[in-house]
Design a binder for these strands. Structure first.
Lengths: 254, 254
DNA sequence: TTGGAGAATTCCACCCAATGGAATGCGTTT
DNA sequence: AAACGCATTCCATTGGGTGGAATTCTCCAA
């Protein structure tokens, strides 16, 4: 998080770190678990948690464990609404046209964050949790977004994040990655070909002129998102991206 | 919030107060607006916001205004999942059977908080924002929940919250309210008959044996949720509550 | 283009709010 | 009942958080 940034409010950073750890743990934890994973002393954690409980962002259960609280729902919904609602009809159109799951993602710092999703109607469908954050190099949307970032900045980002291999197909060499971005710029769309998850293929394009770098994608099983299907899907994807861009120009969000 | 509780972490309370105000304002604000509404000095707000921006819970836009950030989505979704996902299929069953909007709510401190909703398929339907908090005395779920709380505790709660009239039909007298709770216990379900909102009728029952006091309800226009409809709906409501209770017993949430 | 107003951002002396070690309390298991 | 693990409370200490004043930035009207 921001712990390396001078001047941040420490107790705030600590509280949110604890909340994230709770979300990582499925939403419910004991104080000792939090202490072990965060390195903070129990009384410090206890005091922060008590404040969060008093405010409704955390609940304490009868077994003394702590769980994420209902007040977080409203904050999350408000944020999602702001970021993703206006995109949803467009994503729905994508699903209608392609039959696959559509996502929208933003570049936020060094990470890509998924902010809206409309799922495929197939039983076998991609599920990506809204709010999920991933490294850009192994995802279609990440590659699409970085294709519009100057190469020196891309190199710096990669140096910060590293390039861990999610699968055997993930690109882990900076030079190879920059060449891929060149290819993406030339062909006008990005492909995640089993790079983030084996058996999954994703096609992505950026939303032109978005004040916050945004990309949309469709993804599904590699057996359905074939090269042949790609040829049909990409023009739809690019068309919807242009529509989104137009909508952006008129309503100024995000 | 918890500002009257000694020992809370002040900066944490302040930060969340600011986040709530942002949600109230539709998710986007300028610092001066926050300063005017919260009474906090600008530099204090700025420092808290900068920390939140660095952590990803708030974004700053090119126009210098601040907006709720994507990291809140994940926290909200994790909380909602913990609280409401397991209830959703049951609520969907309620909607299937009754045609009206189904909600689940918890008693959290002195307030009732809505944690899950499956909307009616009618055009004219109840919409209650998940995460919304209300006073218990003027809602069906609130009354159902308080019917299971000892009367002295109910009186104490009412003394703390007051009993503001949402409509002309809202019960605003503690004695009348306690008599109503007696009636609810006898008949096995609660009715909000235009007490929270004119033209709206809601039927609610509690989920038996829930470690966190929970209730489910259906609500819709008074013209549809008639006395005749009530007789058909209540047994369904009670049946689903029993199913939820059974599910509770097997998965131990919330 | 310039000037003014409003809003956001930065700086830093001050002090009290946040911290965490030690002690105590609670719940579960044997 | 005793032991153990975990949560909670207490309070002396200090550095993290605060907010007034100054500065910078942005936008709009003349």
């Amino acid at each position: 998080m921001a712990s390396d940034r001078a001047g941040g409010v420490q107790s705030l950073e600590r509280a949110f770190d604890l909340l994230e750890r709770m979300a990582d743990a499925g939403g419910e934890v004991g104080l000792s678990e939090l202490s072990a994973s965060s390195g903070l002393p129990l009384p410090t954690i206890h005091r922060l948690m008590r404040t969060l409980v008093d405010c409704g962002y955390v609940r304490q259960q009868p077994n003394r464990r702590y769980a994420l609280g209902p007040r977080l729902i409203r904050l999350g919904e408000s944020s999602a609404r702001l970021l993703g609602t206006w995109a949803r009809p467009y994503l729905a159109e994508l699903v209608e046209a392609t039959g696959e799951t559509a996502n929208m993602a933003l570049l936020d710092g060094d990470e890509v964050v998924y902010v809206a999703q409309v799922p495929s109607r197939h039983s076998m469908r991609m599920f990506t949790e809204v709010g999920r954050r991933v490294l850009p190099h192994s995802t279609g949307v990440g590659k699409a977004l970085l294709a519009h970032v100057p190469p020196e900045e891309v190199r710096a980002l990669l140096a910060r994040t590293g390039m861990p291999a999610a699968t055997e197909r993930t690109i882990v060499d900076p030079d190879a990655f920059l060449a891929e971005l060149e290819h993406i710029r030339a062909q006008g769309y990005a492909v995640d070909d089993n790079e983030q998850e084996v058996g999954v293929r994703c096609l992505a394009v950026t939303v032109p002129d978005s004040p916050t770098a945004a990309a949309i994608s469709i993804s599904g099983p590699a057996g359905r998102v074939t090269e042949a299907a790609t040829e049909k899907i990409v023009p739809v994807l690019q068309g919807v991206a242009r529509q989104l861009s137009t909508a952006l120009a008129s309503n100024g969000t995000p």
